[in-house]
Nucleic acid binder design. Structure first.
Lengths: 214, 214, 214, 214
DNA sequence: CATGAATGAGCTTTCATTCAT
DNA sequence: CATGAATGAAAGCTCATTCAT
């Protein structure tokens, strides 16, 4: 069952299979260097068959991103919607854990990485991603901050600074891990790393006189 | 006669001119999609002339990175060496300002962006960059943190978390600016944005009872 | 519809067709000057199609030689094995006739000529040919001479001199015919020329007192 | 003095030096694969300087052949003219020795080999060589045979067969030595090999009843 | 005379895309 | 639907030839 059978059981699933193969290939080789034949082979198809489902290599890239784009953004959105108001601090910790978990999973992070790598050359891709992912996340983070400030739990910091300081560490982790194969010394578990960062974010680097250190 | 003459008087600057053109072209098109002829024309040369100076397209990429790699890392290194011990807080603020300034200058950030984009397919490039840039920066940041902790100015946080939370926002800013053309709403000046982030980093999101900033 | 269709029905003969075209093209232009596109067109294909069957131009050269190499050598080998012992004189005459027939047929001699022309730059080709053709022929000629000497029919001459005086006239004929378009005045039939040479070889230039031939 | 000095002593000798370098390079690489720059370097000149003396690469080939062509043919011609009438047998032996000596000297045989290799693609070259070398040799050999027959020393064999059986062994020796690096087992000295072949030629392979063996 | 940087045509090879089967 | 042979437009790279110095 794990072995790709000669006659696939669900021919309707073909497009998805192709996109999965395309994502893997693009992630490995980059869009320009990826060969359609490799994608086809990985999907268990002939080169020509791919063109029955997608009119061009670029169409695969678009479909790919459109398909995988929403997932992470929606998770973040829901997470924030659920607990931001009740417990902003927990929401922030959870958000960071979600981001680090995503970033540490090659499958989940493949599509975002691809967008980061290729969007510059495909403006429509950039637009799509900005609209369907970045804006969603921005709204979610903005809502989290607003709720927290409203509740007096967070200081009233700049929204853009807030977003960058939340999303940035995950990006750094992704780059270091994926591209340079550099893993953290001690906090090898993504969750732990996310917690350590959340702690710095919440309490700051400078020691507090009162008490609180995680 | 102002028109580019057919044969220029042997400017020893040729290799640099070519690398500048190559960086611009690679940054725009990506390495795989960039055409040597485009690089040549941008450098005011014919296709073949480029090969008088570099044996292959990949050699240009390598030379490019080797040339531009050190600059930012050295700046960071010197900055930290100079004031980390005396005033860790100022050192951190300065570090963030340096990173944001670099990231906001397309020329300065072009090479690092290229590495982030292409290093995955060129392991030697990744190795070089890790050794000559990342390791330098890691050491500098590690030294900054150690000095600050030693002086009792910073809490004793995890080094990897510290590095990711320092470098990450710059990465986020770079991605948002370069790829998605998303600028901050209010803090349009990179320095201001760096300051706002430094403030969050130093004092944390949660309000302090003792004094209270912002 | 008689016009070459765009896509032929997969003839498994493609590689052979390509090699035939390659041989003709290499023979005309030399390996270095031959263009893959010319080979392709001669085989009724597009440039790219050739690369579906051979990974490079040099691979065609190798395949070509490996394919055509054995034929002549095997013919010689069998011929000698069959009649050398029984009638060495007839064997020698036959051998010369075989060589001159081969040399006089442009199709048959094309591959050997190619080897003579190109082997110097492709040591592997030279090795292959020496092993699969020259050594076979050397053994056959050596056996012929040994059998004839043993039987008292030939004088005990040096083997290397024997081989060179047997194979040489064919080479001369090939060079004169192929390169300089010089045909014999009288003995225009290769068989007759071979016979005349065999006669000199067997009976020598100096007249014999005993019987006298010619 | 053997070291190429910076300023050459006889600038009038340039063309010859270039042709020497060209011959060596063509012999090694073949005409098509030889690079003008390599020729220039070997002649101790810059690439451009070569074009002060020869208008094109092909012109070098022609000049080369025109220059070196005559030598061997003239030697043969003179040799035959001198002793063919007096002692045809000695003339034949000497002729073979001359041919084998030439063939065994890489410098002397380089030009003829080049012609054999390239003349097919340069009809003018073939014409020149046929006229200035082959025809001269043919005439010389024809004269030798005619004189010998006239004197009753040689049988009246066919001229074309005669020429091929004389010139052929040298060709064979050249091919085996130069291309396939195959040396004779016993008769490693070219003169000895020539003698052995002359012996076969003169007295034939079949033993004579009367006497005479060499 | 001599240099060597520069040109640009031309070559091998690759690969997205098409289409007869 | 699926195949895979075939196409042909590039692209990287080479090198004979030119020409400003």
């Amino acid at each position: 069952m794990t072995r790709t059978p000669r006659h696939r059981r669900r021919p309707e699933a073909r497009p998805e299979e192709i996109l999965t193969a395309a994502l893997a290939t693009f992630a490995e080789q980059g869009f320009a260097a990826a060969r359609v034949e490799d994608i086809a082979r990985r999907a268990g198809l002939s080169k020509g068959a791919v063109y029955l489902y997608f009119p061009s290599k670029e169409a695969m890239l678009n479909a790919l991103v459109e398909q995988s784009a929403g997932a992470l953004a929606r998770t973040v959105e829901q997470h924030v919607a659920q607990i931001a108001a009740a417990d902003p601090e927990a929401a922030l910790r959870g958000l960071l854990r979600i981001l680090f978990a995503a970033v540490s999973s090659p499958e989940v992070s493949a599509a975002p990485r691809l967008v980061l790598t290729e969007a510059h050359r495909f403006p429509e891709l950039a637009n799509f991603y900005r609209e369907h992912v970045l804006d969603v996340m921005r709204r979610a983070m903005g809502a989290l901050l607003a709720a927290a400030v409203e509740a007096g739990v967070f200081r009233d910091v700049d929204t853009d600074a807030f977003m960058r300081i939340i999303a940035g560490p995950g990006l750094a982790q992704m780059a270091l891990t994926t591209i340079f194969d550099l893993k953290p010394d001690r906090l090898t578990d993504p969750g732990d790393l996310a917690d350590a960062i959340a702690d710095i974010l919440l309490y700051g680097l400078k020691p507090r006189l009162e008490s609180a250190n995680t």
